[in-house]
Computed example of a mutant assay.
Amino acid sequence: MIGAHTARALLDLGHEVVVTTHRRTAVPSFLADRVTVEPLDVTNRDAFLALGDRHAITDIVHLAGSIPQNDPVAYFRTDTTGLLNALDAARTWNVRRFAVASSLGVYIGRPETPWHEDLDLPTTDLPHLIIAYKKAVEPLTTHSLQDTKVQPVILRIGTIWGPLVDPESPFFHIPPYINAALRGETPQPPPRQRRRRRLLRPRRRQSHSPPDNHQNPQPHHLQRFQRPPLHQPGLRRSPPAPHPEPPPRPRPRRPANPPPRHNPPNPRHRLHPHLRHRQGSSRLHNLAHHQPPLARATDAT
């Protein structure tokens, strides 16, 4: 479906389009008599390169893929072989651009919303084989075209809408609901994903023993921050260990022949002359002491 709508968009832009098919040879009605259809198994390298002898191909949009079955290795081998053959054809034909389908699922593990292309791709457990393969497609494509003039284009496709979508696809839950309602059936809930089941598992009982690298499932950089609880039900709490007393300070020794102490001068000697009399024993004594001699003689007579 994505390839059919991509071909129609390229036709609307005025390009000539060659469409490759493997099992189905029929094309949608909006592509009839407008595109050239070539049967091709993308895992066949010789057949892939032979297309360049019949058509002047300037750009490649690689959207071919298979559905995973019980053997994940067989799925990865089939899709990786088709990708490598398409990259080999792009290098041989010296095309301008090579576009390949990735997935929006490569952002799984990022807490930011919405996701955008400036985010670094996280390292996390992926819920599906297709998303795991699409995440590996990006470095394989960019590294394969590094020393060439071919420009790689990564298409991180989010979801698929349109009249050609698979109504029973496990990746889109709304179309199956609508189709079931139109048939008069009761819609079935979507299958629970593996990641969701993991989140619903009961937590293990945490041991109150100190953290151990062999028993604690958490990473080593988090184990050192774990501490046993301060109070455990049913257990007696031991008193805290007493703090050790600091050692006594050594008393300073007095020298055998201490130097003579310097007696500071009497602060009275530094007073102003007019204020010295205030340091005496009484005011009357000071007044009598400072009276002139003539006044003394008059009082005596």
Rank of each mutant, 00 (worst) to 15 (best):
F98S: 08
L63Y: 05
W93V: 00
D88N: 09
Y75F: 15
D88C: 07
W93R: 12
D41F: 02
I67W: 09
N70C: 01
A90D: 08
N70A: 14
L49S: 04
V19S: 01
D79A: 06
A90N: 06
A32H: 13
V35F: 06
L84K: 01
R34H: 05
L84F: 09
I57L: 15
V17G: 00
N44K: 09
S66V: 12
T21V: 15
R77I: 07
F76L: 13
V95D: 00
A89M: 08
A56Q: 15
V18H: 04
D46C: 04
R91H: 07
A89T: 06
R54I: 06
G52M: 07
S66A: 13
T21I: 10
R24M: 02
F30Q: 09
L83V: 08
L84T: 05
D71M: 11
H22W: 14
D53K: 15
I67M: 10
D41S: 06
H22R: 15
R97K: 12
V42A: 11
V27Q: 11
F76H: 08
T36Q: 13
T58R: 12
V18P: 05
L40N: 05
T81D: 06
E38K: 10
V95C: 03
S66N: 13
L49P: 02
A26Q: 14
Y75T: 02
P68M: 12
T78M: 13
D88V: 07
L83S: 07
V27H: 06
R96Q: 12
N94Y: 00
T58S: 11
L40W: 05
I67A: 00
L51V: 13
R77K: 07
F98V: 01
A50E: 15
L40K: 13
G52K: 13
R96I: 00
A32T: 11
G82L: 10
D79Y: 07
D71V: 07
T81K: 13
V27N: 06
V19G: 02
D53C: 00
N94S: 14
T25L: 12
R77T: 10
T78K: 10
A86W: 03
L31A: 03
D88R: 12
S66G: 13
